[in-house]
């Protein structure tokens, strides 16, 4: 079986498992498991976003927690004003997820545009440091802004609403996260296969050659970075609703690191890499976290093993490397 078919089979298996396990939990009345699967799905959405910048474009953003946090605060602030019946910047609050998601994506996209325009003039370690610096600015801003809880964070008393679903029920919330994840994966697969993806992946490998073919590396990378931030911002809004809480911790640099770890564990640039990676990370946290508080040490060893012996992550290990043939 060739590696492309193997990867599709593996993807279908992962997608099936991520649906089947919470379905079983729903039937068996195990809401904790459902919420765990929902968390995996939302983390995977955030990592799908980062996978556009990091996996396709080779832009190692060490500041994607910024967009996660921005999305989270959009959801938190909208719900806060809706709950208290007050206005923000002349607008009423809302407890509807759809406008919250739209706003989270627009805001994340705008910020990613500014961050990208400034940081994409550099590369390598400088790019990593500038993206980190912007995320830290967001972190300290949220920390010192008392109107929305400052370092205590902002609770969402009633989970925001989605038409036709009762989002307070774990199973409904899972279905929503799963559907959005599948849409994001579809979008990722679509743009990767299209001319934009061909250009972005070429620029990662050889920017000088791309330029000599008439493809401006800066513009393509900037658009990729903005799309990347938008999807991670969407995940942030959903994550805040899942935990019904948003705090500066969502923008901490360790969160940016976790998103990178998810992609490396799953497979850099692979369609289902973020899903596999998020499942491994959350799985480790739950199972080894129950056994020992030093579970991160074991995660670190696994990460070391992946980097040394299985560069393609779980997907690469099981499905072989990518082929851009034809």
């Amino acid at each position: 079986m060739d590696s492309t078919r193997k990867e599709w089979l593996l993807n279908a298996l992962i997608a099936g498992a991520l649906f089947a396990v919470p379905l079983w939990a729903w039937l068996a009345n195990e809401p904790f498991i459902i919420t765990l699967a929902t968390r995996i799905a939302i983390l995977a959405i955030a990592a799908v976003g980062l996978n556009i910048a990091l996996g396709l474009g080779g832009m190692v953003s060490f500041g994607h927690a910024l967009y996660l946090g921005l999305g989270g605060y959009v959801a938190g602030i909208a719900a806060h004003h809706a709950f208290h019946g007050t206005e923000v910047l002349g607008l009423p609050g809302t407890n509807q997820m759809l406008p919250i998601w739209a706003l989270a994506m627009v805001l994340s996209g705008l910020v990613a545009g500014v961050v990208g325009a400034l940081s994409l003039r550099t590369s390598g370690i400088f790019f990593i440091m500038i993206t980190l610096a912007f995320a830290q600015m967001g972190f300290f801003f949220a920390l010192s802004w008392p109107a929305y809880g400052g370092e205590d964070g902002l609770p969402i008393f009633v989970r925001n609403q989605f038409p036709g679903l009762n989002t307070a029920r774990p199973w409904d919330m899972f279905l929503l996260a799963y559907a959005v994840l599948m849409l994001c994966l579809l979008a990722f697969a679509g743009l990767r296969a299209a001319r934009f993806g061909a250009a972005l992946m070429a620029i990662r490998q050889n920017p000088d050659r791309a330029a000599a073919l008439g493809i401006s590396p800066f513009g393509i990378k900037l658009v990729g970075f903005v799309l990347s931030g938008m999807i991670t911002g969407l995940a942030g809004a959903m994550m805040a609703d899942l935990t019904r809480f948003v705090s500066p911790a969502m923008m901490a640099w360790t969160v940016s690191g976790e998103l990178i770890v998810i992609i490396i564990l799953g497979g850099v640039g692979r369609l289902f890499g973020p899903v596999a990676g998020a499942a491994i990370l959350v799985g480790f946290e739950v199972f080894f976290g129950g056994l020992t508080e030093h579970w991160k040490l074991w995660l670190g060893l696994v990460l070391l093993g992946v980097v040394l012996f299985a560069r393609g992550g779980l997907i690469g290990l099981l499905a072989g490397r990518v082929r851009h043939g034809g």
Binding site: F196, A198, A199, Q205, A210, L213, G214, I220, G326
Partner: peptide, 23 residues
């Protein structure tokens, strides 16, 4: 472009000439 096949390298050049990379 080392990971692309010969065909995809040339396709990328054709794409660059057309100037339609934002699709």
């Amino acid at each position: 472009i080392p990971e692309y096949s010969a065909l995809r390298n040339v396709m990328l050049a054709l794409q660059g000439r057309a100037g339609h990379s934002y699709r």
